[in-house]
Design a protein around this nucleic acid. Structure first.
Lengths: 336, 336
DNA sequence: TCAACGTGAGAAAACGTTTTCTCATCATTT
DNA sequence: AAATGATGAGAAAACGTTTTCTCACGTTGA
């Protein structure tokens, strides 16, 4: 029809071996009946001519494309990249490749991408975003392929994977307690974010029902401001601050340094996200909660595979545990 | 053979319309001869039953999969994401989807990914990395599909796209001059990086053959240190600093603030990369050189498409211009 | 010696498209 | 009225696999 490629097909192998294509197929797939000698010879010839089966042809036959789509509106990749990395890592062993589609909150663009993926017969779609409590600007319900939501809001009855914010908050508080901190506050993002609220609730539960939670923006500037508030009045100052993300934590650490408050000697700081570019470059480097996004990605990948291959998967929200990454800002590998 | 899906095929449309599949195909593709009435009826029926052609089947026929692969070892995505965004944007209009493969400097993993993509008959591969003067840990020469190198080292005779570092440096110096700066220095990364050297050369050419260039690491810490050196001695201090990246620039700005030097009133600072997370959060926000990575991605996408469709593309290194993003750290929408 | 059986290998169909060819049918021209 | 031409639509082949069927041949057992 159109330009034929020069790639070697199973027919070439058959010709070279002097057998039929069926025999070649059976030989290479270790199926069917045939003389061991024939099988070996065919395998050797196939290797010699560098034959690799055309995945498109197999896909057409099996109705399995061995591709999945990752749909995201997280332009900056802060959350998408670790996730992607985990997905890819889990799936590459199964011969599955991943289409990455960045839709920037544009419903039309999203639809174009979804349609393109469906046309290409993806085995499943993983949806992710930059916020757990917002959904992508496209309706993924009723698609002819399985969908897994990771770190974004999903429709009821779907499979949703997310990090356990409460667990993260508990981890942080535990650590602050371990290093001997008694007066702990939480400086975090807006209370319009479900994550912020969940962490705050878990924080209060772990510290005290009336423990101080300061909601602001997710920025360094807010970290500075929060310190100004805490250290500006006549009240007792805290000796431990759990921050809602690493940017806030950096702001807090910088502001404290400017005031001559020593971190971690005088005050222990714990961040959230383990965004290395912040956590590592802050002086001192941030002890911070890691949401295990890569692991979350791995789970999402495996889950979509289960669904694609018809295995049952429990629907509903599943929260994966966080982990604490210890650097210097909290102090004490030993207790202070 | 295996699980048949419930998706509607051209046969279903044919049955519904009471015609043959060939007629349906011709009707939908506006080819062949047939009564206008028939054509319209078939189109309408196809739309009603929600028919979408199976891209796999078309791919098999046309030897065109309408997919390309993006291979990267830039784990952090600093450069890959904008590039990816540009590629995707340019190609989605052509119905092309992008496989993202993150290989972490692991040759074996790289080979697995490349093989998986070749098996899936990608129309081309775009290689990218985190450093212009390093190549990916896999040999992409002699592949049966076209390859474009973007922001990474490519084999001789290949198509290589990269940002014009010299242009970026010139842009920065020009701006510093425009705002009236006379004593300009360049604080940048290690001279083992080709980019650093090219920018430094262009910097010297624009300022003076013996203009001061300070090589260090790509970190905030180096920015601090450089300021300590510059302001620590008895020498005249500069009134303009061109930094090799935004992290260094942030370090410089912070260090100057700590010393009571005002930015941009006393000293103008220009960064490089336009990494918004740094450029925007620095106080004052950084004026910085943007490498137009998204545009570079767009070009890479279009180029791989040209190659895939057999159009001639000039081989060799092609440098795309940078642009200056003006914020506050350099001063003067009007001259100071 | 003949039937039954096991073995090795090929033919053909299938997956879902597109395209080339062929062939009726009907209208126009001589 | 017969030959020519235009029109509309379908049959079949092709893309590169896998799998089911079929079949020839040789071996075993009675």
């Amino acid at each position: 029809m159109v330009a034929r490629s020069n790639r070697v097909t199973i027919h070439d192998v058959a010709k070279a071996a002097g057998v039929s294509v069926s025999t070649v197929s059976k030989a290479l797939n270790d199926t069917g009946r045939m003389a061991l000698e024939t099988r070996e010879k065919i395998k050797s010839i196939a290797a010699d001519v560098g034959f690799r089966p055309n995945a498109l042809a197999r896909s057409l036959l099996f109705n399995r494309s061995f591709t999945v789509g990752l749909l995201t509106n997280d332009t900056y990749g802060r959350f998408t990249l670790p996730l992607m990395s985990g997905i890819s890592e889990a799936l590459v062993d199964h011969g599955v490749s991943v289409f990455l589609c960045a839709i920037e909150d544009d419903p039309a663009l999203a639809k174009v991408h979804v349609d393109a993926m469906l046309d290409k017969q993806v085995d499943g779609i993983i949806a992710t975003g930059k916020r757990v409590d917002r959904s992508l600007p496209v309706d993924l319900a009723g698609l002819p392929v399985p969908v897994v939501y990771a770190f974004t809001e999903g429709v009821p009855g779907s499979v949703i994977l997310t990090a356990d914010d409460s667990d993260g908050a508990r981890l942080a508080v535990e650590r602050l307690r371990e290093v001997g901190r008694k007066s702990i506050v939480h400086v975090t993002g807006p209370d319009s974010f479900v994550s912020a609220v969940e962490r705050a609730d878990a924080f209060r539960q772990a510290v005290a029902p009336d423990a101080l939670v300061m909601h602001g923006t997710w920025t360094e500037a807010w970290g500075h401001e929060a310190v100004a508030i805490l250290w500006g009045g006549d009240n007792e100052t805290p000796d431990g601050i759990f921050c809602g993300n690493d940017q806030i934590a950096r702001g807090v650490v910088d502001a404290l340094r400017e005031r001559g408050v020593r971190v971690p000697e005088d005050v222990s700081i714990i961040g959230f996200d383990n965004w290395e570019i912040f956590a590592d470059q802050t002086r001192p480097a941030l002890t911070t909660v890691d949401m295990n996004l890569k692991e979350l990605g791995r789970t999402a990948g495996l889950t979509i595979l289960d669904l694609a291959e018809g295995r049952a998967v429990e629907a509903g929200l599943r929260k994966l545990p966080c982990k604490l990454v210890v650097r210097q800002s909290c102090g004490g590998d030993r207790k202070i």
